[in-house]
Design a protein around this nucleic acid. Structure first.
Length: 480
RNA sequence: GGCACCGUCGCCAAGUGGUAAGGCCCGGGACUGCAAAUCCCGUAUCCAUCGGUUCGAAUCCGAUCGGUGCCUCCA
């Protein structure tokens, strides 16, 4: 069955159902990284939120075509890649230097995604592979009188598009008041017009174009590649809130201006991340890349969990205390999963109320999906899982769930993990060494040799295996 | 100056008109050889503050205080 999912649309500032242009098929464009450095956890929060969104649609019964651009030509890339080259370097040399930098950090980026369990997009187009499409788009805009040339650069004529400002909810008066910073940098008709194609400057790599040597402006790649790979009507486009203006506003100008109709239906933006209550900044000493955290011993899955236990439209306060809480929360879910994989061990003790496991599960599943369907409310979806765990643990303590019931619960945990990617089925395979230790402990326990039993149990714990003695005298184990 | 957002238990975090979900941490009890896991009990008469609207507000309105973002490169 296909779930109805609603998301906050920046365009309308309301939560609206996502109704794909093609039934059951969601086209999804996300603004990817500029590959000149290591991504920090703030960047990764946004990519993780997009992963969550994509996984939710897939788990909800949709096919998703996901396109994420790799920006591999840009001011900072040029700055960082051209330093070692002589002034006389050829254009080919300049491109090669740029390419060396961007290929290195593209690989780094993809590794980081994998570390966090983020599924790569179906399309990962590099901007430099789509220069002809960008040139074509600029020419189309010229033909529609939405672009003009100045000294080898091409600019977008904002006055030609009355709707400009619709996404950021800015009016032109307001923009003109604040947009004076680099007013003298370009010879534009209006300070709010933005560049589509930049004339080459000395020391920069360039491409041939109808306007002479140059390179694409920042915004044009997303419009060109998005339209090329996902088509004329895109269901969802997302990025961080900082991209609303000017980047996405300008994408709308380019794409809608060229197409003559609305290109994207749903614009979705993820909030920022702060660290220990402060803005993350290199100068504040609280700037973290994923790699730095992993080197400190942070479990990337706990980081993933900590991030997704906050709503994507709320500022996230990253902290090491929060990371610890995330690790402990995960332990509870994983222990429950392990319990469901095994057989029931009903006993006695106080009991609030009996319940029907199948019904309780169905209810939890409904609530879980209702939460996700309501603007991707991941904190509430997770809460549903926890209340289910509490209820079923209590039930299982008194009336052991049947194999069928346990399997149904496991199926739901798998369904949820297809989205949250934090409590996978780890399998039952153990090293021979570990199995031998478990057997040794069993023997010591049978002989009531408690010091030896405890010694072996501690040894196993050091190997990441926690033993749990059951009521019937057998001993189970779990990872932790 | 313009446009928005946020302020709920020690920490994290749902709830946006009908009488405070969930997680972590903490205290007590049960179970256990001891543990672990689990269960039971207990932890906000109150949702930044002050007014107002309403039969009824954390949820609506106004003011105040505190924090954040965008208007310029940026996840």
């Amino acid at each position: 069955m296909r779930r109805t999912l609603s998301l906050f649309n920046t365009l309308t500032r309301r939560v609206e159902p996502v109704v794909p242009v093609l039934e059951g098929q969601v086209s999804f464009y996300t603004c990817g990284p500029t590959v000149y450095n290591y991504a920090h956890i703030g960047n990764l929060r946004t990519f993780l939120f997009q992963d969550l969104l994509k996984r939710t649609f897939r788990a909800g019964g949709y096919e998703v075509q996901h396109c994420m651009n790799i920006t591999d030509v840009e001011d900072k890339i040029i700055r960082d890649s051209q330093g070692g080259l002589p002034e006389t370097a050829s254009n080919a040399d300049r491109h090669a230097a740029m390419r060396a930098l961007t290929e290195r950090f593209t690989a780094v980026f993809l590794e980081d995604l994998q570390t966090l369990g983020i599924q790569p997009a179906d399309h990962l187009p590099r901007a430099t592979a789509y220069i002809p499409q960008m040139i074509q788009l600029v020419q189309d805009l010229e033909a529609k009188n939405l672009a003009y040339v100045r000294d080898g650069s091409v600019y977008y004529r904002i006055s030609g598009l009355p709707a400009y400002g619709c996404l950021a909810h800015l009016d032109r008066e307001g923009m003109q008041a604040g947009a004076s910073v680099d007013a003298d940098e370009y010879e534009r008709d209006s300070v709010t017009d933005f560049v589509l194609w930049k004339a080459a400057k000395p020391g920069e790599p360039w491409w041939d174009s109808p306007w002479g040597p140059g390179r694409p402006g920042w915004h044009i790649e997303c419009s060109a590649m998005g339209m090329e790979l996902l088509g004329d009507r895109v269901d969802i486009h997302s990025g961080g809130v900082d991209l609303i203006f000017p980047h996405h506003e300008n994408e709308i100008a380019q794409s809608d201006g060229c197409l003559g109709h609305q290109w994207v239906n749903h614009w979705v933006h993820g909030e920022f991340l702060m660290v220990e209550g402060q803005k993350m900044a290199k100068s504040a000493g609280n700037f973290f890349t994923l790699r730095e955290l992993v080197e400190k011993g942070v479990d990337p899955v706990a980081l993933r969990y900590a991030i997704q236990s906050n709503h994507y439209r709320k500022v996230l306060n990253f902290s090491f205390e929060g990371l610890r809480a995330a690790e402990n929360s995960l332990k509870r879910i994983r222990a429950f999963r392990k319990r469901m994989e095994g057989e029931g061990q009903a006993g006695g003790g106080p009991w609030k109320a009996a319940l029907a496991p199948e019904q309780r599960l169905a209810q939890a599943r409904d609530h879980f999906w209702a939460a996700l369907g309501d603007d991707l409310n991941t904190p509430e979806a997770l809460a549903e899982i926890f209340t289910l765990i509490s209820d079923l643990n209590a039930q299982d303590d008194h009336v052991a769930l049947t194999r069928e019931e346990r399997d149904a619960v496991l199926a739901f945990l798998d369904e949820a993990d297809a989205i949250f990617a934090a409590w996978p089925n780890e399998g039952d395979n153990l090293d021979a060494e570990v199995e031998a230790l478990i057997e040794a402990r069993r023997a010591a326990k049978a002989a009531k040799n408690w010091p030896e039993a405890d010694r072996v149990r501690d040894a196993l714990k050091a190997l990441g295996i926690v033993l749990e003695d059951r009521k019937d005298g057998t001993t189970g184990w779990r990872r932790g």
